[in-house]
Protein backbone atom coordinates (compact mmCIF):
# COMPACT_ATOMS: atom_id res chain seq x y z
CA UNK A 1 0.00 0.00 0.00
CA UNK A 2 1.38 3.33 -0.96
CA UNK A 3 0.96 6.78 0.53
CA UNK A 4 -1.77 5.84 3.00
CA UNK A 5 -1.37 8.07 6.02
CA UNK A 6 -2.14 6.47 9.36
CA UNK A 7 -4.91 8.48 11.02
CA UNK A 8 -6.11 8.38 14.59
CA UNK A 9 -9.84 7.88 14.93
CA UNK A 10 -12.31 7.67 17.82
CA UNK A 11 -14.04 4.41 18.75
CA UNK A 12 -17.19 5.75 17.17
CA UNK A 13 -15.44 6.50 13.88
CA UNK A 14 -13.85 3.09 13.94
CA UNK A 15 -17.20 1.34 14.33
CA UNK A 16 -18.69 3.37 11.53
CA UNK A 17 -15.79 2.54 9.26
CA UNK A 18 -16.04 -1.14 10.10
CA UNK A 19 -19.70 -1.14 9.17
CA UNK A 20 -18.94 0.47 5.84
CA UNK A 21 -16.14 -1.96 5.18
CA UNK A 22 -18.33 -4.96 5.91
CA UNK A 23 -20.83 -3.61 3.42
CA UNK A 24 -18.16 -3.18 0.76
CA UNK A 25 -16.78 -6.62 1.47
CA UNK A 26 -20.21 -8.23 1.12
CA UNK A 27 -20.66 -6.52 -2.24
CA UNK A 28 -17.22 -7.66 -3.39
CA UNK A 29 -17.77 -11.26 -2.35
CA UNK A 30 -21.19 -11.31 -3.92
CA UNK A 31 -19.85 -10.04 -7.23
CA UNK A 32 -16.92 -12.48 -7.23
CA UNK A 33 -19.17 -15.45 -6.49
CA UNK A 34 -21.66 -14.34 -9.09
CA UNK A 35 -18.97 -14.08 -11.77
CA UNK A 36 -17.46 -17.43 -10.81
CA UNK A 37 -20.86 -19.12 -10.93
CA UNK A 38 -21.88 -17.74 -14.34
CA UNK A 39 -18.55 -17.42 -16.09
CA UNK A 40 -19.01 -20.33 -18.45
CA UNK A 41 -22.49 -19.27 -19.62
CA UNK A 42 -23.11 -18.58 -23.30
CA UNK A 43 -24.39 -16.00 -23.97
CA UNK A 44 -22.80 -14.20 -21.06
CA UNK A 45 -24.75 -13.25 -17.95
CA UNK A 46 -25.59 -9.53 -18.10
CA UNK A 47 -25.90 -9.11 -14.34
CA UNK A 48 -22.48 -10.61 -13.77
CA UNK A 49 -20.88 -8.33 -16.31
CA UNK A 50 -22.46 -5.32 -14.62
CA UNK A 51 -21.40 -6.40 -11.13
CA UNK A 52 -17.93 -6.98 -12.51
CA UNK A 53 -17.74 -3.39 -13.81
CA UNK A 54 -18.80 -2.07 -10.43
CA UNK A 55 -15.99 -3.89 -8.64
CA UNK A 56 -13.40 -2.84 -11.22
CA UNK A 57 -14.37 0.82 -10.96
CA UNK A 58 -13.49 0.64 -7.27
CA UNK A 59 -10.47 -1.63 -7.68
CA UNK A 60 -9.04 -2.21 -11.17
CA UNK A 61 -6.36 -4.56 -9.79
CA UNK A 62 -8.74 -7.51 -9.55
CA UNK A 63 -7.15 -9.03 -12.62
CA UNK A 64 -9.46 -12.04 -12.92
CA UNK A 65 -12.41 -9.75 -13.60
CA UNK A 66 -10.64 -8.20 -16.59
CA UNK A 67 -10.01 -11.73 -17.87
CA UNK A 68 -13.70 -12.48 -17.55
CA UNK A 69 -14.53 -9.36 -19.59
CA UNK A 70 -12.10 -10.46 -22.28
CA UNK A 71 -13.81 -13.83 -22.47
CA UNK A 72 -17.12 -12.06 -22.97
CA UNK A 73 -15.60 -9.84 -25.66
CA UNK A 74 -14.28 -12.88 -27.50
CA UNK A 75 -17.77 -14.35 -27.31
CA UNK A 76 -19.20 -11.19 -28.87
CA UNK A 77 -16.56 -11.14 -31.59
CA UNK A 78 -17.27 -14.75 -32.38
CA UNK A 79 -20.99 -14.05 -32.71
CA UNK A 80 -20.59 -11.16 -35.13
CA UNK A 81 -17.91 -12.79 -37.20
CA UNK A 82 -19.54 -12.85 -40.60
CA UNK A 83 -21.22 -9.49 -40.70
CA UNK A 84 -19.66 -6.39 -42.18
CA UNK A 85 -19.48 -4.04 -39.21
CA UNK A 86 -21.80 -4.85 -36.42
CA UNK A 87 -23.07 -1.74 -34.63
CA UNK A 88 -23.99 -3.70 -31.54
CA UNK A 89 -20.45 -5.04 -31.34
CA UNK A 90 -18.94 -1.60 -31.80
CA UNK A 91 -21.05 -0.12 -29.04
CA UNK A 92 -20.16 -3.07 -26.81
CA UNK A 93 -16.45 -2.46 -27.37
CA UNK A 94 -16.84 1.29 -26.91
CA UNK A 95 -18.38 0.52 -23.56
CA UNK A 96 -15.29 -1.45 -22.57
CA UNK A 97 -13.09 1.45 -23.59
CA UNK A 98 -15.19 3.78 -21.48
CA UNK A 99 -14.86 1.50 -18.48
CA UNK A 100 -11.07 1.56 -18.70
CA UNK A 101 -11.14 5.34 -18.96
CA UNK A 102 -13.23 5.53 -15.82
CA UNK A 103 -10.76 3.25 -14.02
CA UNK A 104 -7.75 5.18 -15.29
CA UNK A 105 -9.08 8.51 -14.10
CA UNK A 106 -8.98 7.21 -10.52
CA UNK A 107 -6.00 4.87 -10.97
CA UNK A 108 -3.77 6.18 -13.75
CA UNK A 109 -1.15 3.58 -12.81
CA UNK A 110 -3.34 0.52 -13.17
CA UNK A 111 -1.45 -1.94 -15.37
CA UNK A 112 -4.59 -4.01 -16.00
CA UNK A 113 -6.71 -1.09 -17.19
CA UNK A 114 -4.09 0.09 -19.69
CA UNK A 115 -3.66 -3.42 -20.99
CA UNK A 116 -7.39 -4.02 -21.32
CA UNK A 117 -7.85 -0.78 -23.25
CA UNK A 118 -5.21 -1.63 -25.81
CA UNK A 119 -6.37 -5.22 -26.02
CA UNK A 120 -9.89 -4.05 -26.91
CA UNK A 121 -8.69 -1.50 -29.46
CA UNK A 122 -6.64 -4.15 -31.22
CA UNK A 123 -9.81 -6.17 -31.76
CA UNK A 124 -12.02 -3.20 -32.59
CA UNK A 125 -13.26 -3.21 -36.22
CA UNK A 126 -12.94 0.59 -36.41
CA UNK A 127 -10.39 1.65 -33.79
CA UNK A 128 -10.07 5.39 -33.41
CA UNK A 129 -6.31 5.68 -32.86
CA UNK A 130 -6.41 9.42 -33.44
CA UNK A 131 -8.72 9.79 -30.46
CA UNK A 132 -6.35 7.66 -28.39
CA UNK A 133 -3.51 9.91 -29.41
CA UNK A 134 -5.35 13.05 -28.28
CA UNK A 135 -6.31 11.37 -25.06
CA UNK A 136 -2.77 10.32 -24.21
CA UNK A 137 -1.42 13.76 -25.03
CA UNK A 138 -3.96 15.15 -22.57
CA UNK A 139 -3.11 12.55 -19.90
CA UNK A 140 0.56 13.48 -20.15
CA UNK A 141 -0.28 17.05 -19.24
CA UNK A 142 -1.92 15.76 -16.01
CA UNK A 143 1.14 13.76 -15.01
CA UNK A 144 4.15 13.82 -17.27
CA UNK A 145 6.01 11.27 -15.12
CA UNK A 146 3.47 8.46 -15.52
CA UNK A 147 5.43 5.85 -17.46
CA UNK A 148 2.24 3.99 -18.39
CA UNK A 149 1.19 7.07 -20.38
CA UNK A 150 4.51 7.28 -22.19
CA UNK A 151 4.40 3.55 -22.99
CA UNK A 152 0.88 3.89 -24.29
CA UNK A 153 1.86 6.86 -26.43
CA UNK A 154 4.56 4.72 -28.02
CA UNK A 155 2.02 2.01 -28.86
CA UNK A 156 -0.38 4.49 -30.44
CA UNK A 157 2.34 6.22 -32.44
CA UNK A 158 3.28 2.91 -34.00
CA UNK A 159 -0.35 2.38 -34.93
CA UNK A 160 -0.90 5.70 -36.65
CA UNK A 161 2.59 6.22 -37.94
CA UNK A 162 3.40 9.59 -36.44
CA UNK A 163 6.70 10.87 -37.76
CA UNK A 164 9.88 10.87 -35.74
CA UNK A 165 10.19 14.57 -36.43
CA UNK A 166 6.82 15.20 -34.84
CA UNK A 167 7.84 13.32 -31.71
CA UNK A 168 11.16 15.13 -31.51
CA UNK A 169 9.30 18.43 -31.60
CA UNK A 170 6.92 17.17 -28.96
CA UNK A 171 9.85 16.19 -26.77
CA UNK A 172 11.58 19.56 -27.26
CA UNK A 173 8.30 21.24 -26.35
CA UNK A 174 7.93 19.16 -23.16
CA UNK A 175 11.53 19.90 -22.18
CA UNK A 176 11.14 23.60 -22.75
CA UNK A 177 8.15 23.60 -20.42
CA UNK A 178 10.15 21.75 -17.81
CA UNK A 179 13.82 20.88 -18.04
CA UNK A 180 13.69 18.89 -14.85
CA UNK A 181 11.41 16.19 -16.21
CA UNK A 182 13.37 12.97 -16.33
CA UNK A 183 10.69 11.18 -18.37
CA UNK A 184 10.99 13.73 -21.16
CA UNK A 185 14.75 13.26 -21.30
CA UNK A 186 14.29 9.53 -21.37
CA UNK A 187 11.74 9.80 -24.15
CA UNK A 188 14.12 11.95 -26.15
CA UNK A 189 16.88 9.38 -25.74
CA UNK A 190 14.65 6.79 -27.40
CA UNK A 191 14.15 9.05 -30.43
CA UNK A 192 17.80 9.82 -30.94
CA UNK A 193 20.42 7.52 -32.32
CA UNK A 194 23.57 9.35 -31.45
CA UNK A 195 25.49 10.33 -34.55
CA UNK A 196 27.64 13.25 -35.54
CA UNK A 197 24.65 15.00 -37.09
CA UNK A 198 22.43 15.29 -34.05
CA UNK A 199 25.19 15.47 -31.45
CA UNK A 200 25.66 19.20 -31.76
CA UNK A 201 21.95 19.88 -31.35
CA UNK A 202 21.61 17.53 -28.37
CA UNK A 203 24.68 18.93 -26.68
CA UNK A 204 23.34 22.42 -27.02
CA UNK A 205 19.93 21.48 -25.64
CA UNK A 206 21.29 19.64 -22.64
CA UNK A 207 23.92 22.29 -21.98
CA UNK A 208 21.21 24.89 -21.96
CA UNK A 209 19.33 22.80 -19.38
CA UNK A 210 22.21 22.23 -16.97
CA UNK A 211 23.23 25.87 -17.11
CA UNK A 212 19.66 26.97 -16.37
CA UNK A 213 19.52 24.98 -13.15
CA UNK A 214 22.75 23.15 -12.36
CA UNK A 215 21.30 21.63 -9.19
CA UNK A 216 18.55 19.76 -10.96
CA UNK A 217 19.62 16.19 -11.62
CA UNK A 218 17.67 15.13 -14.73
CA UNK A 219 19.63 16.76 -17.52
CA UNK A 220 22.97 15.60 -16.08
CA UNK A 221 22.05 11.98 -16.80
CA UNK A 222 21.39 12.94 -20.40
CA UNK A 223 24.65 14.83 -20.60
CA UNK A 224 26.62 11.81 -19.43
CA UNK A 225 24.96 9.75 -22.12
CA UNK A 226 25.85 12.27 -24.82
CA UNK A 227 29.43 12.40 -23.60
CA UNK A 228 29.70 8.62 -23.78
CA UNK A 229 29.61 9.01 -27.55
CA UNK A 230 32.94 8.92 -29.31
CA UNK A 231 31.76 11.36 -31.94
CA UNK A 232 31.92 14.21 -29.45
CA UNK A 233 35.14 15.87 -30.54
CA UNK A 234 37.95 16.80 -28.19
CA UNK A 235 37.39 20.37 -29.21
CA UNK A 236 33.79 20.20 -28.04
CA UNK A 237 34.82 18.53 -24.82
CA UNK A 238 37.37 21.22 -24.05
CA UNK A 239 34.84 23.92 -24.80
CA UNK A 240 32.35 22.34 -22.42
CA UNK A 241 35.00 21.88 -19.76
CA UNK A 242 35.78 25.55 -19.96
CA UNK A 243 32.10 26.52 -19.56
CA UNK A 244 31.67 24.13 -16.65
CA UNK A 245 34.68 25.62 -14.91
CA UNK A 246 33.07 29.03 -15.18
CA UNK A 247 29.76 27.68 -13.94
CA UNK A 248 31.55 26.12 -10.99
CA UNK A 249 32.96 29.51 -10.05
CA UNK A 250 29.40 30.74 -9.58
CA UNK A 251 28.22 27.62 -7.78
CA UNK A 252 31.32 26.03 -6.20
CA UNK A 253 29.37 23.48 -4.13
CA UNK A 254 27.40 21.95 -6.98
CA UNK A 255 28.28 18.26 -7.09
CA UNK A 256 26.85 17.77 -10.58
CA UNK A 257 29.26 20.23 -12.15
CA UNK A 258 32.19 18.60 -10.42
CA UNK A 259 31.07 15.19 -11.57
CA UNK A 260 30.62 16.34 -15.15
CA UNK A 261 34.11 17.81 -15.09
CA UNK A 262 35.42 14.44 -14.05
CA UNK A 263 33.59 12.66 -16.88
CA UNK A 264 35.11 15.10 -19.32
CA UNK A 265 38.65 14.86 -18.05
CA UNK A 266 38.32 11.11 -17.65
CA UNK A 267 37.28 10.52 -21.19
CA UNK A 268 39.59 13.18 -22.56
CA UNK A 269 42.69 11.80 -21.03
CA UNK A 270 42.50 9.03 -18.51
CA UNK A 271 46.28 8.76 -18.64
CA UNK A 272 46.88 12.48 -18.61
CA UNK A 273 48.81 13.25 -15.47
CA UNK A 274 47.62 16.80 -15.19
CA UNK A 275 43.95 15.95 -15.46
CA UNK A 276 44.19 12.95 -13.16
CA UNK A 277 45.60 15.22 -10.47
CA UNK A 278 42.70 17.61 -11.00
CA UNK A 279 40.27 14.74 -10.74
CA UNK A 280 41.78 13.66 -7.46
CA UNK A 281 40.97 17.08 -6.05
CA UNK A 282 37.46 16.95 -7.48
CA UNK A 283 36.72 13.51 -6.07
CA UNK A 284 37.99 14.57 -2.65
CA UNK A 285 35.68 17.55 -2.76
CA UNK A 286 32.79 15.37 -3.94
CA UNK A 287 33.28 13.09 -0.95
CA UNK A 288 32.78 16.08 1.31
CA UNK A 289 29.89 17.59 -0.61
CA UNK A 290 27.97 14.38 -1.07
CA UNK A 291 28.81 12.02 1.81
CA UNK A 292 25.94 9.61 1.01
CA UNK A 293 27.81 8.49 -2.11
CA UNK A 294 31.34 8.70 -0.80
CA UNK A 295 31.90 5.00 -1.55
CA UNK A 296 31.47 5.75 -5.25
CA UNK A 297 33.85 8.71 -5.19
CA UNK A 298 36.44 6.70 -3.29
CA UNK A 299 36.41 4.05 -6.01
CA UNK A 300 36.95 6.70 -8.68
CA UNK A 301 39.60 8.38 -6.56
CA UNK A 302 41.52 5.11 -6.45
CA UNK A 303 41.25 4.85 -10.23
CA UNK A 304 42.59 8.36 -10.73
CA UNK A 305 45.46 7.66 -8.36
CA UNK A 306 46.31 4.52 -10.29
CA UNK A 307 46.25 6.51 -13.52
CA UNK A 308 48.91 8.79 -12.12
CA UNK A 309 50.89 5.83 -10.85
CA UNK A 310 51.07 4.23 -14.28
CA UNK A 311 52.00 7.54 -15.87
CA UNK A 312 54.95 8.05 -13.57
Amino acid sequence: MHGRLKVRSTEEQKLLKQKEQQKKLRAYKYAMNQVAATRKEIPFNKDSLMLCAQVLSVNPDVYTLWNYRKEVVLQQLEMSKDEEVDDALVSFLENEIKLTEQCLLDNPKSYSSWHHRYWILQRHPKPNWQQEFSLITKYLTFDDRNFHCWDYRRLIINKIGISLCNELNFSTERLNINFSNYSSWHYRSTLRKLDSECLEEELELVQNAVFTDPNDSSAWFYLRWILSDRNVTNEKREELLESLTQLLDMDPDCKWILMAKCWLTGSLSLTDNHFAEKRIMDYKKLKELDPLRKGQYSDYLECAKKAIGTEK
Partner: peptide
Protein backbone atom coordinates in the same frame (compact mmCIF):
# COMPACT_ATOMS: atom_id res chain seq x y z
CA UNK B 1 18.25 -1.38 -21.75
CA UNK B 2 18.17 2.43 -21.68
CA UNK B 3 20.45 5.42 -22.18
CA UNK B 4 21.02 5.60 -18.40
CA UNK B 5 22.01 1.94 -18.15
CA UNK B 6 18.70 1.07 -16.48
CA UNK B 7 15.82 -1.08 -17.66
CA UNK B 8 12.11 -0.54 -18.10
CA UNK B 9 9.09 -2.79 -18.46
CA UNK B 10 9.33 -3.08 -22.25
CA UNK B 11 11.75 -1.93 -24.96
CA UNK B 12 12.11 1.89 -24.82
CA UNK B 13 10.23 2.18 -21.49
CA UNK B 14 11.72 4.45 -18.84
CA UNK B 15 14.10 3.00 -16.26
CA UNK B 16 12.51 2.17 -12.95
Amino acid sequence: KNFDGGFGSRPLSESH
